[in-house]
Design a protein around this nucleic acid. Structure first.
Lengths: 141, 141
DNA sequence: TTGTAATCTAATTTC
DNA sequence: GAAATTAGATTACT
């Protein structure tokens, strides 16, 4: 889990939100798409509405995980055989690689996206061909 | 992490995949969308292509998490204030509620989807009105 | 800059 | 009804 245990001056700490500390000051609600429903003629606000949460929202991101070469090697090997690993295989991988299971899940999601992207590009530039990397066989003998 | 440590006869155990055990038998590759790129005139196969992984894929799902009432209460309270919690708040919640951080993340994703859905429906049936549940105010005083 | 981890939405499956 | 998964698009960091 790599529990972070943050004691920082979080604007939205649970304690403040649950009222264990009296806020006393305003907490800005994070509902950009909900704001779409009040009549805000304000053009600046409108810009935030239909878009993804702006860069401010991403400050609270999980720190980027730096996979080691050997971890990626294992992941790639597994991916070659099964790019939709179920919970059991993901948990096995997590234990084996000393990673969280959800990091494994995200890795496979991104890896599939990458493969699909490359397949689309290959298809675009090479309409009538097989794509070389995957033409051999779909099923192991 | 609730590490599952499965020793079962997994078709796709890491050991088999990495070749620590000699497979000897076939491992079917899981690449439905990749199959789209080989000429498979087979109609049955075609059906699998553009769709989500078929029911077989869902066997390996993570078991459904049963949130307790008090866990949901806390989550709902936080959601009222911040429906896009960052990593720090999610980790705080995870520790406080004895849940994994990724379960918190998923809960918020589904909760936002539910809210958007209800907003859309309200908008459909009640075109010119504010939706009652959220018309009060967008920002805490 | 590029590649990719992380996040988001929307639709879907499953229980 | 909702937790889990997916595709796809995007953001942001190394």
């Amino acid at each position: 889990m790599a529990s972070v245990t943050v004691e920082s001056s979080l604007a939205f700490s649970i304690d403040r939100i649950l009222g264990l500390e009296r806020p006393g000051n305003c907490l800005k609600l994070h509902r950009p798409w909900a704001e779409n429903n009040v009549e805000s003629e304000n053009r600046e606000q409108q810009q935030q509405l239909n878009s993804q949460p702006t860069s401010n929202w991403y400050i609270g991101r999980r720190p980027r995980t730096a996979f080691t070469t050997s971890q990626v090697n294992i992941l790639e090997t597994v991916f070659q055989v099964n790019c939709y690993p179920g919970i059991q295989l993901r948990e096995q991988l997590a234990e084996r690689l000393d990673l969280d299971e959800d990091r494994i899940q995200i890795w496979f999601q991104n890896r599939r996206a990458k493969l699909r992207r490359s397949l689309r590009e290959t298809r675009l530039t090479n309409k009538n061909n097989f794509f070389p990397g995957f033409s051999q066989k779909l099923y192991c003998v």
